[in-house]
Design a protein around this nucleic acid. Structure first.
Length: 271
DNA sequence: CTGTATGTC
DNA sequence: GACATACAG
């Protein structure tokens, strides 16, 4: 064996040694994440992902979604809003883009043009202001549902702000949200994007001690009523949508939390 | 914060 | 279509 061969062998050993060590670290990290469900990366938020009734789940960096082709929008969008995600940084509003990850083809923003409806974010831009990329990613048409402006800027906006308040107060929450895609709905645009008659939001707090859950079901119209009047059990939303929201939770705990329409532990007092 | 509309290239 | 600017709840 000449010197050159020996050096080459040593180099190979070093490379594989480092690779093996990193692989080991990643395994440890992944295991920890699965157990805690606290991370927001793709391989981590699966812990809290709902089931898909459409069989088309897409993972983006800042959120995941299940796309309904017949309704040309997501049946659910899921993401974790950590306390650390709350940011005051301002990014310029980009233009909506077709989500190329949707294999069946996502709706074009043109469907919403002059439709009389807002391009209502499901994962709000205001929840993804921790980076330019995460922010801009919310402007994919797979994350948009037709919403009346009075609803979007009204009670829905107030609920989104409340979620940010809870994320701050409870050290982060996991959020699942979407329109109820059911029954006869009117459509807009050439792609026939369905206009939901109700929107839902389901939250779980798994970070501030005892795990707690809350569900909201809000008719697609502006309302001055306080938010707690729209609290329903998660079971109610599951029956309505056919979605199983937290299949990874331990069954007894899941059944108990999802049956409850109590909002005890969720503060409605401020903001 | 949540959004739309319009004019210019 | 991309971009800047103005405006509304």
């Amino acid at each position: 064996m000449n010197k050159k061969t020996i050096y080459a062998l040593i180099a190979i050993l070093i490379v594989f040694g480092i690779y093996g060590y990193e692989f080991f670290l990643n395994e440890e990290e992944a295991l920890d994440i699965v157990e805690t469900g606290k991370e927001v990366k793709n391989n981590t938020n699966e812990y809290f992902l709902p089931t898909s009734t459409t069989n088309q789940v897409i993972h983006h960096e800042g959120y995941s979604l299940s796309y309904s082709e017949p309704h040309e929008q997501a049946e659910w969008v899921a993401y974790e809003l950590k306390k650390a995600h709350l940011s005051k940084s301002h990014f310029k509003r980009p233009y909506f883009e077709i989500d190329k990850a949707i294999k069946t083809g996502a709706a074009h923003w043109r469907n919403y043009k002059n439709s009389g409806y807002d391009r209502g974010h499901l994962c709000p831009a205001g929840d993804r202001r921790y980076s330019q990329m995460a922010h801009d990613e919310t402007f994919l048409t797979s994350n948009i549902s037709p919403q009346k402006h009075q609803f979007n800027s009204g009670i829905w906006n107030r609920l989104e702000q409340k979620v940010r308040y809870w994320a701050s107060k409870y050290n982060g929450v996991f959020v699942v949200t979407g329109g109820v895609l059911k029954g006869q709905m009117r459509t807009i645009g050439d792609d026939a994007v369905s206009v939901p008659d109700q929107f839902y939001k389901v939250l779980i707090d798994n970070n501030s001690g005892k795990t707690k859950m809350i569900g909201f079901l809000i008719p697609h119209k502006e309302s001055d009523a306080p938010l707690y009047e729209f609290v329903v059990s998660v079971d109610t939303i599951e029956t309505l949508t056919g979605i199983d929201f937290f299949p990874q939770l331990e069954d007894t705990l899941e059944a108990k939390l999802e049956a409850s329409k109590s909002y005890k532990g969720w503060s409605f007092n401020r903001k």
